[in-house]
């Protein structure tokens, strides 16, 4: 009797899931060997060094075909005794958005359909800082700074208690030992729960296959950072992981014409960030949410 029940249940379940089965058919029908390999690719953190090398070689091959450039894909791990933090001097930001576009170039963002930008500069009326509801994102005057306004650039705050890491159902995003929250783009399933969970709108989604102009491609990339992504994966600022692990400033720090942006290692007592936290009045956005961001805003003296 029990076996009959199982077969009966099986029949019903098959009938019920016929539609589900139908949905997967097109997914599997166009399966080449390469796509099968992609499908079965492991989580980055579970790969052995040999597997990582193989994946890197495969990706380099693919990028060469797609973009015509020889890529150097690094999988460099966190440098020991580093804990990165960012500083932004609000009294100096003039809202020119050069950081936004330097980031776009350095990190191989999709330029249009969809247009992805990891940094967003908000314009706030003087007298109001914390309530971001009155911010303007699409200001486009002839010259900046405009009188009566201040500018607040926001990007991923690399929280110590990241809500996005907590809610990801597949561990596709995690915090590296040097404090950077990264995404394994090949593991992300595109559920966008992390985008709903982020209080700073730090994460953006590749709604379609990214459009990167070939001549503007940056070929020195990191696997977890700025390598060209694919459609329907989440991405975010990685503090230019390809640069900082080699000891270089992030692209936005170098692009800022007013020297607003600062970067450093919190574990190094001589670093710029320690100086700032010790001597300047720093604050962090939405501290009351308990996310412990590592992005410190400060004002002169």
């Amino acid at each position: 009797m029990q076996n009959k029940r199982y077969t009966r249940r099986e029949f019903l379940r098959n009938a019920s899931l016929a539609a589900l089965g139908g949905l997967t058919i097109p997914v599997f029908s166009s399966c080449t060997k390469e796509e099968a390999e992609d499908f079965l690719q492991k989580h980055f953190r579970e790969m052995t060094p040999e597997e990582k090398k193989r994946i890197i070689a495969k990706l380099e091959q693919r990028y060469l075909q797609k973009y015509g450039r020889k890529f150097q894909i690094s999988t460099q791990e966190a440098v020991p005794d580093t804990f990165w933090a960012y500083g932004l001097e609000l009294s100096r930001c003039i809202g020119c958005r050069r950081c936004v576009y330097a980031c776009v170039k350095e990190n191989n963002h999709s330029r249009h359909d969809p247009q992805l930008q990891w940094i967003r500069v908000l314009r706030l009326k003087r007298g109001n800082l914390i309530n971001l509801e009155n911010s303007e994102h699409y200001y486009d005057p002839d010259l900046v700074p405009e009188k009566g306004f201040i500018y607040l650039p926001v990007q991923c705050q690399q929280c110590q208690e990241p809500p996005c890491v907590k809610v990801c159902p597949v561990h596709a995003t995690w915090q590296e030992p040097d404090g950077i929250v990264v995404v394994d783009y090949n593991w992300c399933i595109g559920c966008r729960y992390c985008i709903a969970a982020c209080p700073y709108k730090g994460r953006v989604f590749n709604w379609a296959e990214p459009n990167i102009p070939k001549e503007e491609i940056n070929p020195s990339v990191h696997y977890l950072g700025n390598r060209p992504r694919m459609k329907c994966a989440v991405e975010k600022c990685t503090f230019c992981i390809q640069r900082v692990r080699q000891g270089r400033y992030p692209a936005c720090v170098e692009a800022c014409p007013t020297g607003t942006r600062k970067f450093g290692n919190l574990l190094d007592p001589n670093s710029e960030m320690r100086y700032i936290i010790d001597r300047k009045r720093v604050f962090r956005l939405k501290e009351d949410l308990g996310t412990e961001p590592k992005f410190y805003y400060f004002f002169e003296a």
């Binding site: 080699q246 000891g247 270089r248 400033y249 450093g264 190094d268 710029e272 100086y275 700032i276």
Partner: peptide, 26 residues
């Protein structure tokens, strides 16, 4: 002198090349 005011580009640690901008640059 501490790097907080002004602009620095290049490498902030290690032997890599770095450039500090003079006051007059900005």
């Amino acid at each position: 002198k501490a790097g907080i005011h002004g602009k620095r580009v290049g490498y902030f640690t290690g032997p890599g090349k770095r450039i500090y901008y003079l006051c007059a640059h900005c």
